[in-house]
Design a protein around this nucleic acid. Sequence first.
DNA 1: GCCGTTTTCGGCCCGACTGTTTTCAGTCG
Length: 576
Amino acid sequence: MDKREIAHVLRVIARMLEIKGEEAFKVRAYERAAESIERTSLQLEELAREGRLHEIPGIGKNLEPKVREMVLSGHSSFLEKLMTEIPKGLLEVMQVPGIGPKTARLLFDTLGVKDLEDLEKAVLNHEIQKIPGLGPRREAMIAEGLLEVKKYSGRVTLGLAFPFAEHLIAAFRDKGIEGQVVGEVRRCLETVSSIDLLLAVRGDPTRALLRSGLQPFASEELLCQAWRAEDEVFVFNTSLGVRLRLYAVSPEDFGLKMFWLSGPREHLEWMVRLAVRRGYDFNPSGLFRESRKIEIPQEADLYGILGLPPIPPEVRHRLDLCELARSGERISLVDVDDIKGDLHIHTTWSDGVAGIEEMVRKARALGYKYVAITDHATRVKLINGLDPDRVLAQREEIRRISSRYPEIAVLSGVEVDILKDGSLCLPDEILSRLDIVIASIHQDIGDLRGDLAERLLRAIENPNVDVIGHPTGRLIGRRAGKSAGLEEVFEAAARRGTLMEINASPDRIDLSEDMALQAYRSGVKMIISSDAHSPEGMEDMRFGVLASAKRAGLPSAAIVNTQDLSKWFPVKRASS
DNA sequence: GCCGTTTTCGGCCCGACTGTTTTCAGTCG
């Protein structure tokens, strides 16, 4: 297991311990260990072999052997033991808003609810409101939340799947096997139901995998179990909870297979129709001209033969764009390399884990020309939000640090909460002295009676507000977010020049692809930002670019932080 | 379960809100 998988497993264990009723600090310890492992730059395998894993903060004498087992053997017997006590499906049940560990346990003990399916039955039979301590309101809340959670059941976010796939491809390359990510991950869907990889292999794929020596592909027995002859693919269960599918093909047909495995279906059918019109016979076994098969080692070759530029996988579902490409029009799409700065990050001044300087260094390492420090100003006590005094103190600190990094502009900003009545939780006098103000809703999102659009409109009317952060407030697989009334919000934002954020945090992707397209069509300018709470978190930027903006077909001109700072930034208050 | 010590125990990130109660547990951010 690599770092991210181990972190994921530790978090799963934390949830299970919570359901078991273990004390909160113990649960917290597992979560901290997960964060710590994700963040460390140390080599886990080396540490594990030398018995030095305790050098990672948060790994003590109890966690050390558990983590060592994961690093060296690729599984966790502790997790396996927990799963015999706590059904894994309860973790999905706990995703439903209003169901925490206690209620999940209660539902399990009283109604035998083990998974979402059981929960749905209980809701339909109105059994939940009969449980002492719960009632009709709770049942209604669960019924509503269940719909959203069910939609994403069996899927994981791109934030988990993408690095997992990349890591495996790199590992195969190290062993001399070339491969590519295909399927949903390649198209950068915000959540995926499987991780699909294609390997270029001569001869017997089983032999090639065995020769690679990679875990868990080096066991003949496991490979035999994993082989699905009808689809010619190895299928493995991953620690992430979705299937890993390994396809293998000879190098001559690599491009062909890559195309067919990347999808989506509507694009494949569109290409077949085009090929037929151009006098070819095209099906998954090959592209044929007068019964002669044409070799397609690279996927781009296929597009070239059919007279097309290569169509990026992220927009293959957009047949309107495919048609434009066919007519010879150049399609310009925003991409990860276009991003010149991150305008939404957190530090230890609020709930981030790294200081200002560490975050600035990371921004510089990413090649950014500017970065904005935007810690929370909030009434949520758990988050150490900035009050007016600390806002100003931080601004001084940022100036001091900034002077040491002349190659990158460091902006002083804030992410200020939009309160229930649409007012902001910092006075205008303070906001007006900052370089950038992001206004976001964090509280009372679940409140059906609160009108989210009203609150956003009021925030947009405030001249100090530059950006609306994660506008719909959705959390993927948990909370749908509010899109009612957003047309009006977009119109107001376009009129006033207020920017809308595409929040790239993989649990949010907010604005989503559809919403970003709608915003673009309303004439709204957007920023894409990581909302990072750690240096590593800044790498999430790509998920916002790929899963939302690029899939929406947006050009880089629609995204303000693809431009130089001087081009758009009003420098309205820098001197105050 | 980790950590640091005024060093082997006690602290670790808190408080509002809600639906259920009739005084509070559970969830959320």
